[in-house]
Each structure stands twice: as structure tokens, then as C-alpha cells.
């Protein structure tokens, strides 16, 4: 249960990190808190030639708000968000999500950027930041590109990050005062990876919603036609009009064949909607 030997680099700035990624021989794997990669290295499921530790890069620990948008560097930890060491523009939504990730010892080292790069479909930030309408800055020697969370995950442990790219920052738009938030996950044991996630941001005044069904062992299901989920319109009485049949059909269409799995996902989504009401 010890990792295979590797080279280790811990640059102090992003430019040096990018040059390691393009210049190193063999495979390079970026590590931040190592709470997902660490176990895989110990089990030797992953054996890169070089580990690139990005936690000495001060720029990746930034946390600031500009024009109502929160920007968090990739190395901000779940505990940093849970404890309110970073500003909040989501009315406490991110703080609540962070507080329920794994265990405190994991949250003290696990980072928001690491969790997203790992692209585990059951990870909390994957679903919650999609519902919150967040986007990501991906940096490479070619420049920076911005990718919306809804387009980021391709499948289980697969994202749009190219081999020479580094997830630099997460951008979260301010939540409208009228927008309601609900986030529920199902775990058989506290702190384990979720078996179902419902993340909803519903604005009854604007008549709009962003609704995500997560932890489906593939990219989260982002519901396009949210009105249909509430009988055609979204208003103040949305929770009482939640249509479980529509949610069940969306899950079937996404290839979830097992009726019990679908039932759990629908029940969790219903709870998230109720929490938002």
C-alpha cells in the first residue's frame, strides 16, 4: 500500500507549473490536497512519473468578489468554504455543501479545484456548482479558456481538461435574492460518496430554474426543460407541482435502467425541491 516512486515538483508560480507539465518526461499528474489522488496512488491504480504539487502557488489560493462574481483559486479547501474564510455570494449554499463533504480531516486538505478535476460523478461540487451556474478557468501555455460547469464533465472521471491544462479558478455568480436553493444527497454511510444527488436553484419570481440530478455514475443530468418538471410553469407554488413522472422519464432517457435507482434519484430530487420551497 505504498505509491510507486515518482518525481516531485512544487513550483511557486503558475508559469513554472505549466512548464513542468509541458517539459517533464513521462506522465505528469497534478496534486493539490491529494484526498482523491492519494488513495489511488497508494493502491497503485495510478503511477505517474511526476507529481506536480500546486499547493505552494499563492495565486491558486485567491478568494475575491468582483462584479458580484466570486472567484476561488483551485487550492481553496472545502474547510475554507465551510468555515467562511472565503467570501460567499450564494446565500450560504456553498458553505452548506462544503460542510457535508466527506469528513473534516478530508475537508482540511481536499480542494475545490482538485475535486472538480478528478471529475467523480458523485462529488458534491460537480452537481452543486453546475446548479449554481459556475464556470471554470482552465490555463495552459496556450492561454486561458473559460468553461461552464454544465459542459465540463464528460463522464465518470472524464472532464474537458486537456493534458496540458490546469484548473486555475472557479467562478460562481451571485445568487439572486429571489432564488431558492436546495441540495440533498443520499449516502448509506455519512461522508461516503453519494448514490444520488439533487441540486436545485429555483427562482419563482423570474420563473426560471437550474436543476441537476447527480451521482449517476456518468456526467450529471442537467435538466433543460425545467418548466415541465413543475407542470409547465415555475412560480411560488413550484414544490406542490413537482412531477415525479417527468423526473423518472429523464432518468430513463439517460440510460438508468434500474427502477430502484431511478426511485432513489427521484426521491432525492423531490427532497431538494422541498428544501428550496
Amino acid at each position: 500500500m505504498k505509491p510507486a516512486p515518482f518525481n516531485y515538483e512544487r513550483p511557486r508560480d503558475i508559469a513554472s507549473a505549466l512548464s513542468v507539465m509541458t517539459g517533464a518526461e513521462g506522465t505528469v499528474k497534478i496534486i493539490a490536497g491529494g484526498q482523491s489522488l492519494g488513495p489511488m496512488l497508494n493502491l497503485r491504480l495510478v503511477a505517474p512519473d511526476t507529481i506536480l504539487d500546486i499547493t505552494a502557488i499563492a495565486e491558486l489560493k485567491r478568494a475575491d468578489v468582483a462584479n458580484g462574481e466570486l472567484t476561488l483559486g483551485a487550492c481553496v479547501t472545502h474547510a475554507d468554504i465551510e468555515d467562511g474564510r472565503v467570501p460567499d455570494v450564494t446565500g450560504g449554499a456553498m458553505q452548506r455543501v462544503a460542510a457535508d463533504i466527506a469528513y473534516r480531516a478530508v475537508r482540511n486538505r481536499g480542494t475545490i479545484g482538485g475535486s472538480l478535476s478528478h471529475a467523480d460523478p458523485s462529488a458534491d461540487w460537480v452537481s452543486s456548482l453546475t446548479a449554481l451556474g459556475a464556470s471554470l478557468s482552465l490555463r495552459s501555455v496556450r492561454g486561458i479558456r473559460r468553461v461552464a460547469m454544465k459542459d465540463f464533465i464528460l463522464g465518470a472521471l472524464e472532464s474537458v481538461i486537456a493534458p496540458d491544462e490546469l484548473l486555475e479558478a472557479v467562478h460562481v455568480p451571485a445568487r439572486a435574492a429571489s432564488a431558492r436553493w436546495g441540495y440533498v444527497k443520499s449516502c448509506r454511510k455519512t461522508g461516503e460518496f453519494a448514490h444520488a444527488i439533487g441540486a436545485v436553484l429555483i427562482d419563482p419570481e423570474a420563473g426560471k430554474a437550474r436543476i441537476v440530478i447527480g451521482a449517476v455514475e456518468a456526467a450529471p443530468i442537467v435538466i433543460d426543460d425545467t418548466d415541465a418538471l413543475f407542470g409547465g410553469t415555475i412560480d411560488g407554488a413550484f414544490a406542490s407541482r413537482f412531477d415525479a413522472r417527468v423526473a423518472d422519464r429523464l432518468l430513463s432517457d439517460a440510460g438508468i435502467a434500474d427502477a430502484t435507482d431511478r426511485h432513489i434519484h427521484v426521491a432525492v430530487l423531490r427532497k431538494a425541491v422541498a428544501e428550496a420551497a
Binding site: R10, R12, T55, C75, V76
Partner: peptide
């Protein structure tokens, strides 16, 4: 901010280790 244990002054030098 950042992972517990990271970001100390002594950490900021890039280090290349013999494979």
C-alpha cells in the same frame, strides 16, 4: 487558505528529485 500543511515559506522552492 489552502490545504493544511501547505504554503509554508520553506515550501516555495521548486525541487526536482532523482527518479
Amino acid at each position: 487558505l489552502g490545504p493544511a500543511g501547505s504554503g509554508h515559506a520553506a515550501c516555495t522552492a521548486s525541487q526536482k528529485l532523482a527518479p
